[in-house]
């Protein structure tokens, strides 16, 4: 039998988008340190349900760190204290007996709360819809080896494409800015020859990003520090310069 710990949880409870919320306290007792954070919440929820309460709503799905569904803010840190780790892969061994954990949803105007710890991140989808694609239709593709891609570019594109769209960058940013998410998208496509066609892509995505009510980037780099997939802020720089170039081209073409 592995070690167990006791924790005090202060969880944000909010019945719906338009109702006010507040922190509620729960005692998490005999928590096996081999549990994941979400399994700990499962255990609490089972207790709440059997106690005729309303279980804590929290988003989660794959529980292996790739779908990007899960994520809450634990003691001020999105996805909790462990670096490069999504909430579902955070294990309770990272906490100490007697700890108090304040658990809050992602906070951003662009991410309204749906219930408790569940927020609406569809703003990120809408940004992608504004320009996050190459435009190729099914059947149009040339033979895959028609264009060789330097391995270095392909690797960098992959680094950026590793983004899971969880929104932790927005949650961590003091300005609730989505620049790391959008920057990753821009780099992913922009670094590959296949993605370089559309000259308004970045402008369109940035317009949508602004319209959603995300804040402005002030280069605090909290996003990079929090990102569970280690997406680098150089992607933001790439977006900044691509945007500038697109603006110039747009002016020239108009």
């Amino acid at each position: 039998m592995s070690k167990t710990i006791n924790l005090t949880l202060k969880v944000w409870r909010q019945a719906g988008a338009d109702t006010p919320g507040k922190l509620e306290t729960y005692n998490a007792t005999n928590i096996d340190v081999e549990m994941s954070f979400l399994e700990m919440l499962d255990v609490i929820n089972e207790e709440i349900a059997l106690d005729d309460g309303d279980p804590i709503a929290f988003d989660n799905d794959c529980r292996e760190g790739i779908c990007g569904t899960c994520g809450v803010v634990v003691n001020g840190s999105p996805h909790g204290p462990q670096k490069s780790t999504t909430l579902c892969q955070l294990h309770m061994r990272k906490f100490n007996d007697g700890d108090t954990l304040i658990i809050e949803p992602w906070r951003a105007k662009a991410f309204p709360v749906i219930k408790d710890l569940v927020v609406d991140r569809s703003a990120l989808d809408r940004i992608s819809q504004a320009g996050g694609y190459t435009g190729v239709k099914t059947g149009q593709a040339p033979e895959a080896h028609t264009i060789a891609v330097p391995k270095a570019d392909s690797d960098k594109a992959m680094d950026a494409a590793a983004c899971i769209g969880c929104g932790a960058c927005v949650a961590a940013c003091p300005n609730a800015s989505a620049m790391l998410y959008v920057g990753a998208k821009v780099s992913h496509l922009g670094l590959l020859p296949q993605g370089k066609l559309d000259c308004d892509r970045v402008i369109n995505m940035v317009n949508q990003m602004d319209a959603e009510g995300f804040g402005n980037c002030t280069n605090t780099y909290e996003c990079e520090a929090t990102c569970p997939k280690d997406i680098n802020v150089s992607n933001i720089a790439r977006m900044n310069r691509t945007h500038l170039v697109e603006k110039i081209i747009q002016r020239k073409n108009s």
């Binding site: 190459t134 190729v136 080896h145 060789a148 391995k151 392909s154």
Partner: peptide, 22 residues
């Protein structure tokens, strides 16, 4: 084979060797 073509055209960053081929 068409799937690989399609995915590459969409910008899927498949692993490549140092010559730049898949």
């Amino acid at each position: 084979n068409s799937i690989i073509d399609q995915c590459v055209a969409q910008g899927v960053p498949f692993a490549r060797d140092y010559s730049g081929y898949l």
